[in-house]
Amino acid sequence: MLSGLALAATAHAQVDQENLDDYGTGIIKDYANLRSTDTIEWVWIAPGVKLKEHRYEVKPVDNLTSYDDEDMEDMIDSGLARTMKRISERNAAGTLLQITPAVYWAERGNANKLWVPYSGGHLAQAGVGLELVIIDDTGKEVAKFRHSGREGYQLRDAAEEVIDDLRKYISAH
């Protein structure tokens, strides 16, 4: 049985229902095994899988939000594809994995939020939340990511930040 402290740490590490209620769900079917890290909000990688050793094919982004923002979608489609191509080029012999990306949340920059005490500068920035599901050639899930970021006042800027965080994580793991 887990002690109170261990239980609290475990509960904190999972995607909580409040987050899913506030920001919505995406393409991930089961959030139970996702864990937070220092750099990515929530991630799960199958035991034994080293993401940095694979090649990648990226499917077009699925925008699940009400925003019709071509710049954001282009940044995710082209930025994620370029990023994963660079990783793939270092791993010519690696197994091909397929990434399905989806935007589950987006919020345009809003200068009116600058006046919110203690966090207005952050909340005024544009925000984008992205989920990635990575599968192998048999259709088995080998990794799942749920990550968001705030940057600049355009959704494109926030999307670029999220892609950069994911690139760093995948390149290191």
Rank of each mutant, 00 (worst) to 15 (best):
M75H: 09
M75G: 03
D77G: 10
S78Y: 11
S78N: 09
S78Q: 11
S78F: 11
S78A: 07
S78L: 12
G79C: 01
G79V: 02
L80G: 06
A81Y: 10
A81H: 10
A81K: 15
T83G: 10
M84I: 00
R86L: 12
R86N: 12
I87A: 05
I87V: 15
I87E: 03
I87K: 02
S88P: 01
S88K: 00
E89P: 03
E89Q: 07
E89D: 10
R90P: 02
N91V: 00
N91R: 00
A93V: 00
A93Q: 07
G94C: 03
T95R: 03
T95C: 04
T95L: 04
L96R: 03
L96T: 05
L97A: 03
L97K: 00
Q98E: 14
Q98P: 04
I99N: 04
T100M: 08
T100Q: 15
P101H: 09
A102K: 11
V103M: 10
V103I: 15
Y104M: 07
Y104H: 12
W105H: 15
W105V: 10
A106S: 15
A106D: 07
A106H: 07
A106R: 01
A106K: 05
E107P: 06
E107S: 13
R108P: 15
G109N: 08
N110K: 13
N110P: 07
N110Q: 12
N112R: 15
N112G: 13
N112S: 15
N112T: 14
K113A: 13
K113Y: 13
K113F: 12
L114M: 14
L114T: 11
L114W: 12
W115T: 10
W115H: 09
W115G: 11
W115I: 11
W115K: 11
P117F: 04
P117K: 00
P117M: 04
P117S: 02
Y118P: 02
Y118S: 12
Y118M: 11
S119E: 11
G120M: 02
G120F: 12
G121H: 14
G121V: 09
H122I: 09
H122G: 11
H122W: 13
H122S: 15
H122C: 11
Q125R: 14
Q125V: 06
Q125C: 08
Q125M: 15
Q125D: 05
A126V: 03
G127N: 05
G127H: 06
G129V: 08
L130Q: 08
L130P: 13
E131N: 06
E131Q: 13
L132A: 01
L132K: 00
L132V: 05
L132F: 03
L132S: 00
L132D: 01
I134P: 01
I135F: 04
I135P: 07
I135C: 08
I135D: 07
I135W: 04
I135T: 14
D136S: 00
D136C: 02
T138I: 04
T138L: 09
T138M: 05
G139A: 06
G139R: 02
G139W: 03
G139T: 01
K140Q: 13
K140G: 11
K140N: 10
K140M: 09
K140Y: 03
V142D: 00
V142S: 00
V142W: 02
V142G: 01
A143P: 06
A143I: 02
A143Q: 07
K144N: 08
K144G: 03
K144P: 06
F145I: 08
R146K: 14
R146I: 04
R146G: 03
H147S: 10
S148L: 08
S148E: 13
